[in-house]
Design a protein around this nucleic acid. Structure first.
Lengths: 126, 126
DNA sequence: CTTGCTTAACTAATTATTTCGTTGTATATT
DNA sequence: AATATACAACGAAATAATTAGTTAAGCAAG
């Protein structure tokens, strides 16, 4: 998956948040000092070329949607990171950061519980 | 911490790997097609300006060292990522990717064991 | 219809990043 | 000493990314 540049990522973060929107909607979600309308418009069209968003046309105005989900992008992004910084071992990464954050065994058990619940939720449906 | 550009990151990865080196040493570790000597030389000087590396001079030639460790940089990088993509919750990130990678409860227990060992290793020393 | 407003498309301008040629100096070699 | 070699420093050129002005088309209000 293509990497997002900083400006592109900012626009995607807004789109992921608002689900869909016109350029003016995206613009609204920027902190001051907001960029110019045309700046956002350009970036959103670049994102479209890269396949990250699509649009639905209402006459001449376009409503933009993410095509790549935040999950998909974060997956790809972390995969690259884990590969580059933890020789592709998710386990190494987790234990490194868990230690970093002084996450205790107890807290890890909490995470496991969350995971177990997610497994339970999915099992009966499949 | 400043972000590394793509070219800068490549040089840092080499430096982290070889611990220290002259420009020609760094160059050697690039895959073909290798960049020009001057390209690497320039990037390493930019990295020096940014505070990521320093050098020891032997007459007119410089041996470069990382100042920022790979651990420090990856810490900072993942912190930003977790903040932007998992509303700053390391736990959410872990459980999301654990599920993603179909890491089972058993495997998580393996990770916990590794963590426990690390904790044991450190305890007697402090 | 005509004027004004909104918008996407296009494009120009600016800034950041990457790449590497050129230069000058130090050092080694003859 | 003269020439060759190796290197850092500098800076020019190329490329990528960002920002926003200009334009043209559609639509709304009078």
């Amino acid at each position: 998956m293509r990497e997002l540049t900083r400006a592109e990522e900012q626009v995607m973060q807004v789109l992921w948040k608002i689900k869909k929107g016109f350029v003016k909607d995206i613009l609204e979600h920027f902190d001051d000092p907001k960029p110019a309308y045309n700046t956002v418009s350009t970036i959103v069209r670049i994102l479209q070329d890269k396949g990250f968003v699509t649009h639905k046309a209402y006459g001449r105005t376009h409503e933009y949607y993410p095509l790549v989900t935040k999950s998909d992008y974060s997956k790809s992004h972390l995969k690259t990171f884990v590969n580059d910084y933890f020789s592709n071992s998710f386990e190494k990464m987790v234990s490194f950061f868990a230690k970093e954050k002084s996450i205790s065994v107890k807290e890890m058990e909490e995470i496991m519980k969350i995971m177990e619940n997610e497994v339970k939720k999915q099992k009966p449906l499949r």
